[in-house]
Design a protein around this nucleic acid. Structure first.
Lengths: 227, 227
DNA sequence: GTAAATTGTTACCTCTATGTTACTTAATTG
DNA sequence: CAATTAAGTAACATAGAGGTAACAATTTAC
């Protein structure tokens, strides 16, 4: 993920803080959004779906903790990292912050360098966690969705699209039996009508390339991938 | 969950739309309910607790958004998936829809195939989220519906489909006596006619594999599974 | 206690779902 | 646009799940 596309929402009631933090982060290439209170923060968050939200704890009207709880309740923001900004010494807010669903906290005053590295660290953590969706690792097998390739041990295998998608589907839940109908729906799509032996043939090819033992047939139901 | 038992409530003021969508979905095996307006939709929903509700946004009297909010307020429908049906271009309704608690939206006109696959996807998402009851644990026995396998102590047993389904049915309510007729309906399906000894033979095989003592015969009635 | 009904057991058969191969058609690629 | 690779089809092979028949054992009815 490039910084240019990484959105950070700053929420604080003091314009000075917004300015100084905003300046430092945008100098790093991040896209900055701001809000002066919890209510505006929520509407901004809904609108822009930022990757990171930095929330001041002490704010008039709706404080940071309450805002955090509200933000966490929004499904689209489940992937968003939330961190608190707290004055040094207000120890209680740490605990309350984590209860409310925050991922980290930053104490004020904060040196620009420290702030930037903290933000980077948080986003890196986020990115790595989110990247697990694209790379499936199973035993000696790595399925790389992004690059459309398979790594088996040190060997790199390029699979044709359908075979790749079939493998990716089965491997997305190892052990789970996927019904033939579901496989058709999800790999071929509803629109396409294919003959009755098509899935079998593709399974056969995968067995040849990946290993026979990894694909189990459950007669009358479908197939499953085992590790 | 079999499609036969999946209820979908269609709400639209145009009978044509109800008919065409209803036809396509019932052809897929879903059980279809309909309502011409928001008020009727709510009473239908309360009565039948559908798994999915497809709501037209533009309706006289109570529009889709208002209906959606009312539906979401009904506790029994918390598990229900709600999706809007909106004419292409009415972009505002998307946003308003999500605010009102909808899970997705479908734009009209919609091709039957697309509709069907969207519905399947929605129900799959829902099903996966609510799929905590796929594992039945009874004593030293674990029945794993998702992986179609049985775990007895440390031993793993793979059962043929009918045997698995028969076991899963009996074990779904330990102690309850299932009538022969009911077993036929639910494992074999009411269309199929099989000979009089078929169930017994399958029970025999289960007794062999799982343990004689777990399957009790209730003469003149049926069988039950005991722990 | 005997007959009738119901269930248990075994061996065996059938037919369906899947496996496999070779081939045709469609899509990509240089 | 020719060559190459992917996707899908057809045709046949095969295993084993699912079912049946025949008879035994057990329970229930009278």
């Amino acid at each position: 993920m490039k910084k240019k596309h990484t959105k950070i929402l700053l929420v604080d009631d003091e314009p000075d803080i917004l300015e100084i933090i905003g300046y430092n982060l945008s100098a790093e290439g991040y896209q900055i959004l701001t809000a002066e209170n919890g209510i505006k923060a929520i509407s901004q968050a809904k609108k822009h779906k930022p990757h990171l939200i930095i929330l001041d704890v002490m704010m008039p009207e709706m404080d940071g903790i309450e805002a955090c709880e509200k933000l966490r309740a929004i499904p689209e923001l489940s992937e968003t990292v939330i961190t608190f900004l707290t004055a040094r010494g207000e120890d209680y807010s740490q605990v309350a912050g984590f209860d409310a669903g925050a991922d980290d906290y930053i104490t004020k005053p904060v040196k620009p360098k420290v702030l930037v590295s903290k933000v980077k660290a948080l986003l890196r953590r986020f990115k790595e966690e989110g990247a697990n969706d694209t790379n499936i690792k199973l035993g000696n097998l790595v399925i790389n969705r992004e690059e459309y390739k398979i790594q088996k041990g040190k060997e790199e295998i390029i699979l044709p699209r359908k075979e790749f998608e079939l493998l990716a589907l089965l491997a997305s839940k190892p052990g789970k039996v996927f019904k033939r109908e579901d496989i058709l729906d999800r790999v071929w799509g509803n629109e396409v009508v294919v003959g009755g032996r098509t899935i079998d043939v593709h399974i056969r090819k995968l067995r040849e390339k990946i290993g026979d033992e990894k694909f189990k047939t459950v007669k009358g139901v479908g197939y499953k991938f085992v590790v």
